[in-house]
Design a protein around this nucleic acid. Sequence first.
DNA 1: CTAAGTGCAAAAAGTTTGCATTCCG
DNA 2: CGGAATGCAAACTTTTTGCACTTAG
Lengths: 163, 163
Amino acid sequence: MGGRRVTGRTVSALHSAADLKRFHSLLQSYMDKKGLRSTDQRRLIVDLFFHANGHVSIEELLADVRVRDARIGYATVYRTLKLLAECGIAYERSFGDGVARYELADEFSHHHDHLICIECGGITEFQEPRIEQLQDEIAKRHRFDLRRHKHELYGVCAKCSKR
Amino acid sequence: MGGRRVTGRTVSALHSAADLKRFHSLLQSYMDKKGLRSTDQRRLIVDLFFHANGHVSIEELLADVRVRDARIGYATVYRTLKLLAECGIAYERSFGDGVARYELADEFSHHHDHLICIECGGITEFQEPRIEQLQDEIAKRHRFDLRRHKHELYGVCAKCSKR
DNA sequence: CTAAGTGCAAAAAGTTTGCATTCCG
DNA sequence: CGGAATGCAAACTTTTTGCACTTAG
């Protein structure tokens, strides 16, 4: 119910082995279908993305990737993330700071929305099924085919209020 | 209750005269306090912003503004919108298409969230008090001082589904 | 082999800023 | 007058693309 703290890149994501399996097989079948190739770079980037904490920017992921292989370029990470977004494995987000961020799709992680602290920039996740239900209602009301949503609460977190 | 269609720039916003009055007086007092000046350009931009449909980009507002005064530059609109955002009269948003958009703060308009069509880009507004209430609950649960939120539903609108 | 992928560097697209000039108060 | 605002153009930032070279299949 509550959210777990995932500010920045301090907490490692906890996805199950089963998620990883489905993730790989979906990606593989998409790549097969499109005639795309599996390269060292792509495997590394995709792997680190899966294990990264949610909400990584291209720059951040590139830094991670370069620890393992310093030759990899920005454009490759950029194109690989686009690829993941294309086949529905990743969502492209932007929290208003002008840089694109990517996170694992709900089906490989767990669906969640965000509380964002306007003081420290910390991001906490939350889940609220009753809101999801109301969203479906709204979509129905508008005869709108709802595919995804973005729900962000901005304010000051407990820690920052105290200071 | 339902939302009204405000796609792009086709429907004119309907704010009350009282809103306009409060809007001007808040802006005026902010400018007085900061020693800022009232210029022809600023008055024109601010005025057109108030009467514009929600969600205007700098580029769009600039186009409107230039109908009245062709000499006005991008930077002036940019700086004026920043000013409005600074003093809380406007919100800066971004719907992921890489351009910043501005809309009137809730207190001068009416609070609403957005349904965004991923086919045609159309934006429809919606309101749902029960969601607002649940948000407050979530914030409380996290001892989070909620200041504002962003709730966007992405999908395919009725019109586009039909095609 | 050959079409796809990579890395680089250049091009775009949008946002910010420096500065000479204009103009509000 | 003096400092703030404007308009222009240049600087930035981030994203996207073209291209020659490499490589998976």
